[in-house]
Amino acid sequence: MERTSRFDYYKSRHIPELKVLRAALSDFSYDRHAHEEYAFGVTLAGRQDFFSGGEFHRSSPGNVIQFNPEQVHDGHPGDDSTLGYVMTYVPAAQLEALFADAAGSERAGAFRCGDTLIPDPELRRAILELSQLVIHRVGSRIEQEHALYRIASRLVQRAGQFQGAGKASRPDALLMRAKEYILAHLEDDVSLDDISQAAHLSKYHFLRLFRQQFGITPHQYVLNCRVNAACHALEAGVAPAEVAFRYGFTDLSHFNRRFKRIYGKTPNQYQRSVTS
């Protein structure tokens, strides 16, 4: 019997922009991409193989996977069995106050987790509790917020003494200019020259630094940002064809392919799942 992959998305009724993915993968591999949000996942069945942070990881059932915003990664089943997992996506704005409170420092609002693959039963229970509340549309706002606080406090606790981001180095500051330029021009036909000039770097130097820092090319990053922006537009009810045109995809077919490589569903399928 032929196996197919399944991707089910659920939006919280209580916490703005929080959503959960419940996935079963047998014949699907994600392209390298990054999300704007924090992502907290638990491997439920099979083996979850992925690349992130300059190395390959293998997650067996029960392990926690955590991605910071803009952390590039991919993913696929690691063996012949079906890979099952849940992933909860939380906007940074929803976690800043929780991180700061858990660490007892306002500077901790910009917290970033140093670990990607985490064997932690307490953290796993909190993630699964939050995902089940969202998936089954049960519980109150305070219950979802409490589960989210447990996730934030456990991550800060595991990190020990909080280390602030510190002053950005010059290359980091220049690359941040490039990222800000890209995000401000997602609906425009930007070129590599435009982006490197915004960062005040030569094209060669910019390409090398960008790839070294983020693990993907500027072109891949632009496409990734456009898909993320398209996702928000779809959630707001904008027609997929209009979204494709707005964010510079050559046609709906091109948009479908790019979107599915990151979200596992076509834009139309995704929109139906989160707006129904």
Rank of each mutant, 00 (worst) to 15 (best):
R6Y: 09
L128V: 07
H35V: 04
L44F: 03
F259P: 04
Y30T: 07
R112G: 00
A97L: 09
L223Y: 02
Q220R: 11
F111W: 04
V274M: 09
D120Y: 02
S26T: 13
Q212L: 09
H136A: 06
D188T: 06
E96Y: 03
F50L: 15
E36R: 11
I118C: 03
T250L: 13
C231N: 10
R6H: 12
G41L: 06
A236F: 00
A165L: 13
F50E: 03
Y270E: 09
L117Y: 02
A244M: 09
H76S: 10
S202R: 13
R22W: 12
R246Q: 14
R137K: 14
R257G: 02
V156E: 06
N256S: 14
F51S: 13
Q213W: 00
D194I: 03
L175T: 05
D74V: 09
V72E: 12
R58C: 11
R124F: 04
V222F: 10
A199E: 10
Y247R: 08
A229N: 07
C231A: 11
D120H: 08
Q94F: 01
V20E: 07
G54Q: 06
R154T: 00
Y9L: 11
D74M: 14
L201A: 05
R6I: 08
L223F: 06
R272F: 11
E122A: 14
E143Q: 15
G75I: 05
F56H: 13
N228F: 00
Y204A: 13
Q197F: 00
N268G: 06
A152C: 03
L130R: 00
G166C: 03
V20L: 15
R154D: 02
A239V: 10
A110P: 00
R6V: 09
L83Y: 09
D172P: 00
T266G: 05
H14S: 10
D79K: 10
P16S: 15
H76D: 06
Q271I: 07
R258H: 12
F255D: 06
Y221D: 12
L130G: 01
A199G: 07
G46K: 11
L207S: 09
R170D: 09
A23C: 13
F50H: 06
F28R: 08
Y204N: 07
A244K: 10
D101F: 04
C231W: 01
D194C: 03
H14I: 02
T275Y: 02
D101T: 05
E180W: 03
R257M: 12
F28Q: 07
F40M: 01
R3F: 14
D49R: 15
I15M: 15
D74T: 10
Q197V: 00
F206L: 04
V86Y: 06
K260G: 03
M176N: 10
D101P: 00
L83W: 09
H219G: 05
L183C: 04
A178K: 04
S52V: 06
L155E: 11
Q48N: 15
V138D: 08
G104D: 09
A24T: 12
I182P: 06
A198F: 05
C113Y: 02
A230G: 15
T250S: 14
L192G: 12
G84L: 08
L44K: 15
G114P: 02
